[in-house]
Simulated assay, not measured.
Amino acid sequence: MNAVNPGPEHSPRSRPRHEAVAALRPAYLAELADGPSVFFEPMRHDCPCCGSARIGGHLRLPDLIQHKPGAFRIDRCHACLHLFQNPRLNARGLDFYYRDFYDGLGEQQLDGMFGGRTKSYRRRAESVLPYLGEAKRWVDVGTGHGHFCEVAREVLPDVVFDGLDRSAGAELAELEGRVERGLRGAFTELAPGFAGSYDVVSMFHYLEHSTEPLRELEAARTALRAGGRLVVEVPDPDSRYARLLGRWWLPWLQPQHLHLMPVANLRRALSELGFTVVAEQHRSAHEPVDLVAAVWLALDEAAPRDDLPWLPARPGRSRRALRTSALLAGVPALVLATLADRMIAPFAQRLGLCNAYRLVARRE
């Protein structure tokens, strides 16, 4: 049973949060009646990247962001070092765990967060600019609400940006004028309809969410003209922060991140699909948030839960007050972690701490 998608007059934006949560609770609890096991595919016994049977448990995590029920295992392939969620969420599970994250209850918060990353988006556009050639048409896959495209147009005023996303964010991006066209749907299904139309396809922190990353890369090849550029930015599982911070490393992001590809694996996959990598970037792809995010995740896990529709009942007043007190007590640690992130950032690549990497590849 899926939660009914509320109409505009009943959306979480148009009512107090506690009322929106209460309205969603019956559907969530009904869906959880059979337990979280119904949200997973059977466990696989080989690597989805290279097919090796030499795989083993690497990490086991709960949902540290939304705190929805369930436990998630990340396996590592000992042959190619690919990391992947195992067992993987099925279609029902993907729907359940994404719901109210980018839309619904989480829409306003996420829109504000992504909208406030202007400097990061500008740096991203400027970093790939030297490798784009005479680009005129660009589609940003996994565009969300199109904030990157809005900023990138200032760096590349002659480029027409389209945005593609599975969510209604793509349509909203078009309505807000952030993209020329907002394309809603699965990239692998839509790409044949605009084969060879684009000079640039970008996937910024999109591929790790995909159930079949290689099919997404094939779709990019289809959408690009000969000589066009593919820009891929993903979390770097080889970052030393992944080992130092363990379960508190934000880019694990379970259960959303299904695949974490070492850079060598992605380079090899692109080569096999007929791409030539023209740039590999680590420092400019790094976001200095690892330490502050780790502190926040730990505090949020330790403090009593806020009101959430997948909880059987709303926490009482005393429990909510205790949560507020615990989070306020953690403010000094958050401030120190923020300062440390900024101080370390200039040396992140030299220290092997970059939390992401970016590849620019040419379609031959």
Score class of each variant (00 low, 15 high):
T222D: 09
R225H: 09
R225G: 11
R225L: 11
A226S: 11
G227L: 06
G227K: 03
R229G: 00
L230G: 03
V231L: 09
V232R: 03
E233P: 02
P235I: 10
P235G: 07
D236P: 02
S239R: 04
R243C: 00
L245N: 01
L245H: 03
G246V: 04
G246T: 09
W248H: 10
W249S: 07
L250K: 13
L250N: 09
W252I: 09
Q254M: 15
P255Y: 04
Q256W: 13
Q256D: 10
H257G: 05
H257N: 02
H257I: 06
L260Q: 07
L260W: 08
L260V: 07
M261E: 07
M261C: 03
M261I: 05
M261W: 08
P262D: 08
P262T: 11
V263F: 00
A264C: 07
L266A: 07
L266S: 07
L266R: 02
L266H: 04
R267Y: 02
R267T: 08
L270R: 05
G274V: 10
F275W: 08
F275D: 06
F275P: 02
T276I: 03
T276F: 03
T276C: 10
V277L: 06
V277N: 05
V278Q: 01
V278T: 14
V278R: 00
A279P: 09
E280A: 14
E280D: 10
Q281I: 14
Q281E: 15
H282A: 05
R283W: 11
R283G: 05
S284E: 15
A285S: 10
A285T: 09
H286M: 07
E287V: 13
E287G: 07
E287N: 13
E287T: 12
P288I: 11
P288H: 13
P288S: 13
V289F: 15
V289T: 14
D290A: 15
V292H: 12
V292L: 13
V292K: 14
A293N: 13
A293S: 15
A294S: 14
A294Y: 02
L297T: 01
A298G: 00
D300L: 00
D300Q: 04
D300N: 14
E301H: 10
A302D: 06
A303W: 00
A303M: 02
A303L: 02
P304S: 04
P304E: 10
D306E: 15
L308M: 13
P309A: 08
P309W: 11
L311V: 06
P312I: 08
A313R: 15
A313M: 09
R314Y: 03
G316K: 04
R317A: 14
R317L: 14
S318N: 05
S318E: 15
R319S: 14
R320F: 05
R320L: 15
A321Q: 12
L322S: 12
R323Y: 04
R323H: 06
R323A: 02
T324D: 12
A326C: 12
L327G: 00
A329F: 01
A329M: 04
G330N: 01
V331K: 07
V331F: 11
P332G: 08
L334S: 05
L336E: 06
L336T: 05
A337T: 06
A337H: 03
L339A: 14
A340C: 11
D341M: 06
D341S: 03
D341G: 05
R342S: 07
M343Q: 05
A345N: 07
A345S: 08
F347M: 10
A348K: 01
Q349R: 12
